[in-house]
Design a protein around this nucleic acid. Sequence first.
RNA 1: GCCGGAGUGGCGGAAUUGGUAUACGCGCGCGACUCAAAAUCGCGUCUCGCAAGGGAUGGAGGUUCAAGUCCUCUCUCCGGCACCA
Length: 859
Amino acid sequence: MKNYDHKKIEKKWQKEWDKNATYKTLNPGKMKKMYILDMFPYPSGVGLHVGHPRGYIGSDIYARMKRMEGYNVLHPMGYDAFGLPAEQYALQHKIHPRKAVEENVKTFENQLSIIGLSYDWSRKVNTTDPKYYKWTQWIFLEIYNSWYDKTKNKARKIDELVSIFEKSGNVKVNAVCDIHIEIFNSKEWKTFSKLEKQAILMKYRLAYEGHSEVNWCPEMGTVLANDEIVTDAKGNTVSERGGYPVEKKSMRQWFMRITAYADRLLSGLDTLEWSDSIKEIQRNWIGKSEGSLVKFPIKDSSENLEVFTTRIDTIFSGTFLVLAPEHIFIQKNKNIISNYSEVEKYLNEVRNKPDEERMNKDNKTGVELKGVKVINPATDKEMPIWVADFVLGSYGTGAVFADAHDQRDFDMAKKYKIPLSVSIKTDDNALFERVKNLEECYEGEGTLFNSMQFDGLTSREAKPKITEWLSSKNLASKTVKYKMRDAIFARQRYWGEPIPLIHDKSGIITDLKLKNLPLELPNVKSYESIGTGESPLAGVKSWIKEGYETNTMPGWAGSSWYFLRYMDPTNGKVFASKKNVDYWNKVDTYVGGSEHATGHLLYSRFWNNFLYDMGYVSFREPFKRLKNQGMILATDGRKMSKRWNNVINPDDIVNNYGADTLRVYEMFMGPFEQSLPWSTESIIGSRRFIDKVDRFKHKVKGDKSSIELEKVLHKTIKKVTEDIENFALNTAISSMMIFVNEMEKAESISVKDFKIFLQILAPFAPHITEELWSNLGEKKSIHKSLWPKWDKKKVMDDTVKIAVQVNGKVRTEILISKDIEESDLKTLVLKDKIVMEWVGESLIKRFIYVKGRIINIVV
RNA sequence: GCCGGAGUGGCGGAAUUGGUAUACGCGCGCGACUCAAAAUCGCGUCUCGCAAGGGAUGGAGGUUCAAGUCCUCUCUCCGGCACCA
């Protein structure tokens, strides 16, 4: 490590940049803007490994180039610090979580500061700062005080819904919540009590109170997150710490009605420059399926059981109906079901079954509901009703009709010997049904169904026709279902944003007003949840006295809008001023890990779409382009982890090789989006590259480089500029390495050209380039200089060397003028000895010339 | 099971999107410099073959004048979802 002294140089310039506020973002003005954002980190106690800064370095290089190209660049950094890990760290170290966050932020900033990242630190945000979470709480209240109007396809204020109720009742309201809507008119509405009105509105609010099952550990007296529970050797779910049994418990929660935005979250994806894989993950998560809602009339009753299906074409073979254990039909018809005690016993069994067993696909269980039947609307056949836990209460209508084509139905039928049938169409166009025995059905499955025809259409093609036919009898309708569920927006924990709502003794909920925000987290003696499973806030007397909500917000609350706060981080009046929001607009390039595909990246899109509906932001989608950096794995190919003892610390690399080397190496390793193992051996190549550049300072003289070198330089400018734009940073570096190799061969290099080279290298290696730049007499920072442009003439070659193939095999190379006519070229090529040796006496069948690329002679 | 992505030298990878496969870097070998080493520089480095040539981008087919790139089948690895009707 002789050559240049990276420690001295890097420290010197980092101080200088700090002093001169080199990377300060300007306020909205005439300059064109560019918003380049990193996903802000969760500052954990363990510190960074070498993989963490990879994304930051990539976005930093991009931001540095954009700044030199004359953009006003917003490139900030901050901290997402509420949530479980900080709370647990605090518990372990017996300090206040706020203190823990402070410590961890300090560690984090020390590690980041030595890498030479060009953030404007004056815009730093921290989600746990009351000045910040004041606005997280405000957004929550905006969402709480809104409902989704399906006809207008946007969110509206809840007051507008109330006035609709007051004028005309809920008849015309088309809201997301389309099940269990009470019918009332405006007169009735006025007679409802406050509490009744609240209950109705709760069904419309975009943030609403409800109940859900949580992992409850009686021994610890606390609710556990999914990653805090494990399965023990006996297959029981237990707490990760202590191994105590964990059971399901229904708890009061807050929810976000993200499902209202399902369609927009889906269609919005088409407008985004994101990787196909992330878009696909989100599409799958939203899980849109188009199908039909079919009514199965209950025998000897005027009521129906509704079933959702995407395969209405199989209805002719539907021979039994299966309900989810949660289905209200069962409770409602207790008295009619003749074997209710048996059914009840089954329902209890299911409730206590661990998830894992319930998810066991090979062991379907169920019970028939005796004494009730439904009628198949397509065949008018009677069908028995079963209850089975493989049917999910939370999807579709919680009921399915079963037939031979579905593996699950088939397994069920086989186990309980329920007759199955198939329907085929006969020549005289009548539907013909035949009950087959199970074995026969199994054998015939596939072939029979594939050959089934409806009016000359295949089974699947006939779906719309069948729905149409049944809907003419008012027995079916087209419908769309989503797999995505509403998001739980509550944690029974201390370390999160308080939910700014007040419950009075009669159960009326009121929201805090902006002037009373932030509702600050009170100090508590213990951060463990109190024995009831409620959050520690439920044990704070002053808190309870005021009637404040005891749940806190989940970790994703603060991170769902932070990109807006950077635009105007200190504003005390609004979350960000309109002027700032309009100027900075959406994030142009967002860089972060792909692990947030179904979490943060979906929630942020949801909130931003909501804020758009309410007119607070002028753009629907928050992140235009997304780049996901790949992980850096340990040298052994595993994830870096304390557990494997394979962690490589960036501090050591910066210390031994310098920050510039770390930056160049991490980008040179391979494609930005790809996961790669760290190589302790290979990093030296990046250091050698920088050393070579440094040594050239003695070779720089005069004002003229050779024409050849100039050409390579301009090609390199073009390549590097385009590659940075596309985050192809590995090939940008390799092209600069090629240029350096060319410089070595050259006698000398002009001051002018060397400076240009330093400029294009500057985003990658900001310290050494600044040093050499200033050594050449420049007074202003290289990072404030104007990005070089390539000369089109110098990038083009007058003569090109192209390959000559005979029958697709390369036989020789030929030097030609780039503008040569094909006929002239042909004469030239056919004079070539080597070519003619291969062509020989044969007749030339074709002569193919791809301009500037290749010649292929087919004989 | 379903949905994505990927398989190229000893290693990380490149290939202007169908046009000279293996750029760039690491490693390794030989040489120069040196008393010696380190550092640095030069040459070499897919494979078989003395050569002329032949073969090779996980495997098998296909389309094309031309395939790492497109199509079909198949194997392996990684990621996501998972009883979603």
